[in-house]
């Protein structure tokens, strides 16, 4: 029955609705450039969501772990074969995104007889110079975008919009220290996480309302203050684990990726988050 164009459009529309619901329970991913490189952060429930792809490229994901693994492996394969056959400096985030991820994800999304990837991916690439740091994010339908300075993944575009509004309300952070960057990233994460919880409960109340409805609601309500955000982080971190990786511009050797150890991360957390959690 999908042979008719109208049916196909309808099926793709259903697919969007189904996928949007899949991400509401996921944890947002935040990446931002600070004075010494790039930081990527999320809160995870057991399975890690942040990974090393290549010497200067990190990946953060939302979605189904099996789908993320599949896409991560295809990126790793592409990056390493390319880095070996050409050179490590030819492995760029833009090429991985445009030729590695986007076509595969888009095709899977539109082939309505097959399962789509339940995945949103964020690639952060450390440039040779700070002004060449790049963030690339891709949605479950294969749509991708590039940004500078920071990027985040959230369940819906309205959640991402709220995170953007929060970042825009903050002072510039390009020269921030690692501890300042961690705090800002935690706040952005909390904005996203709270927005997701709110939209989830509102859709639960009026289950059949359209997506545009919660978008309007999400954008209009005012943003919570820093203390409220950090309290939310503290409550969440008590049950789940905070994950944070860095791409360090002055790191030794060619590999700039480094995951922060829990004790290091503990020392960087703002007191409002760390004090009750440390036991």
């Amino acid at each position: 029955m999908y042979e008719e164009p109208y049916r196909w459009i309808e099926a793709v529309g259903n697919r969007r609705q189904y996928l949007d619901e899949q991400f509401t329970k996921g944890s947002p991913v935040v990446a931002l450039a600070y004075a010494d490189g790039i930081l990527m952060l999320t809160v995870s429930r057991g399975t890690p969501k942040l990974y090393e792809i290549y010497d200067r490229i990190a990946l953060g994901g939302m979605g189904h772990p099996a789908d993320l693994e599949k896409l991560r492996f295809s990126l790793l394969e592409m990056a390493h074969v390319e880095g070996f056959n050409r050179s490590p400096s030819d492995v760029t985030g833009a090429r991985l995104m445009k030729y590695g991820l986007a076509p595969v994800i888009k095709q899977a999304f539109e082939e309505i007889y097959k399962a789509p990837f339940i995945a949103k991916i964020l690639l952060a690439e450390l440039g040779v110079k700070p002004e060449r740091d790049l963030f690339l994010s891709i949605n479950y339908d294969g749509n991708f975008e590039e940004s500078r300075g920071w990027a985040a993944l959230g369940a819906t575009s309205s959640v991402q919009g709220r995170m953007r509004r929060y970042v825009e309300s903050q002072p510039p952070f390009a020269q921030a220290s690692l501890a300042q960057a961690v705090e800002l990233a935690l706040c952005i994460w909390a904005v996203g996480s709270l927005a997701q919880t709110a939209s989830e409960s509102s859709t639960a109340e009026s289950s059949s309302t359209q997506v545009s409805d919660d978008k309007a609601q999400g954008d209009d309500s005012c943003l919570p203050d820093r203390a409220a955000l950090l309290t939310h982080v503290r409550h969440t971190v008590a049950e789940k684990s905070l994950e944070c990786v860095l791409l360090e511009r002055r790191g030794p050797g060619s590999t700039k990726y480094r995951a922060l150890r829990p004790d290091e991360l503990g020392g960087l957390l703002p007191p409002a988050v760390s004090s009750p959690a440390v036991t």
Binding site: P48, Y51, E52, I53, Y54, D55, F73, L76, H80, G83, F84, T255
Partner: peptide, 16 residues
């Protein structure tokens, strides 16, 4: 050396 370098990196990144 190039093969080894990429092999070790690839192993670490895929197998975590």
């Amino acid at each position: 050396v190039r093969v080894l370098e990429h092999s070790f990196k690839y192993y670490r990144r895929t197998q975590l």
